[in-house]
Design a binder for these strands. Sequence first.
DNA 1: GTCTATAATTTGATAGAC
DNA 2: GTCTATCAAATTATAGAC
Lengths: 204, 204
Amino acid sequence: MTADNNQTEQVILTAAKSVFMKRGFAAARMQEIADEAGINRALLHYYFRSKEKLFEKIFSEAIGNILPGVKEIIDSDAALFEKIEQITARYIQFATEQPYLPAFVIQELNQHPDKIQMLFKESNNLPDPRKLVKQIDEEVKAGNIIPIQPAHLLVNVIALCVFPFVAKPIIHLVFGLSEEGFKNFIQERKKIVAQTIINSIKKH
Amino acid sequence: MTADNNQTEQVILTAAKSVFMKRGFAAARMQEIADEAGINRALLHYYFRSKEKLFEKIFSEAIGNILPGVKEIIDSDAALFEKIEQITARYIQFATEQPYLPAFVIQELNQHPDKIQMLFKESNNLPDPRKLVKQIDEEVKAGNIIPIQPAHLLVNVIALCVFPFVAKPIIHLVFGLSEEGFKNFIQERKKIVAQTIINSIKKH
DNA sequence: GTCTATAATTTGATAGAC
DNA sequence: GTCTATCAAATTATAGAC
């Protein structure tokens, strides 16, 4: 593989990511990807054969960027409250850097659940919740936190992190935030989410 | 307007809602709507002129079903904790009856933010958060709840209600739930969400 | 490896008969 | 009001020259 080859491939991937994230698979156009990459459509097919194959590449890369980090935290030996703080911090930081990603994943997940679920599985980085589930159950038993089902706690954490990004346009509308105001809002959530979760389960 | 006219129009709207919810605007096909309505494409255009107009009708109807109820609760004179319980109950009940709706709204919101924001505004049922914001601020000042910015509290409530529906395929995957298991999970959340929120803000 | 030209198909929309 | 036939545009994909 020549340097040029590699470089063009990378330019295409960058452009494809940008377009797929903004538009979603169905509304994305190969022409727009080509334009953004500064090449023509034929070359897209030369490198990736089809729109679908290109999409799969982009999607797998995207989840490959976030899953390993989350998995690592979930499987770590840290204490529960510490894990919660780490997960929220990493999630929000990641979504801040790639603000289109959460809505994109949710959109595709709901439109082709089987296919997307397979891509998640193939990534081999899907967090296995069992260890964390056990840890939560033990904290409950030990009387350190109030009784709560681990699945609900986990969903609560992810929901508080991710939702503001997918609901961004509605938040702008309801609270009349500027772009800057929204950024502030997200930064505040880095502390607020962990605090909210911990307050909701700790015994006082 | 004859009975037949009205009936056909209703059949089309029902079919269109089903298809748009499942596919989203970009991936929805007029042919599929026609098939599901048991008519042909030409008749769709006879009644609604274009795909876009049909979509707007469906979207406006959809948000028209949920917004007035939420607005009513938010503007009511109920105590804060009571409002939180009412909002969570209504949201989750509504999303249970129309499980595709939350992901659908989020998808379209992110793909055509300006247009969708306008449809929200035109509905004239967008909740005005000011009264609730004031109520929260007063509870904070009175020392009844911990200091929290109203916007974060509101986003937390909606996030915990809505997120499980938009993330349904991933929840299935991670926790290995059956369809029945997911329904149970959602029913449990009717109590858990309000409880989580209230625990997170009340003083102990 | 990259381009131009074009094929093949899909899809939203309209014309016109009944 | 409903249908068949057809148009016009868009879009993915390929063939072939350079």
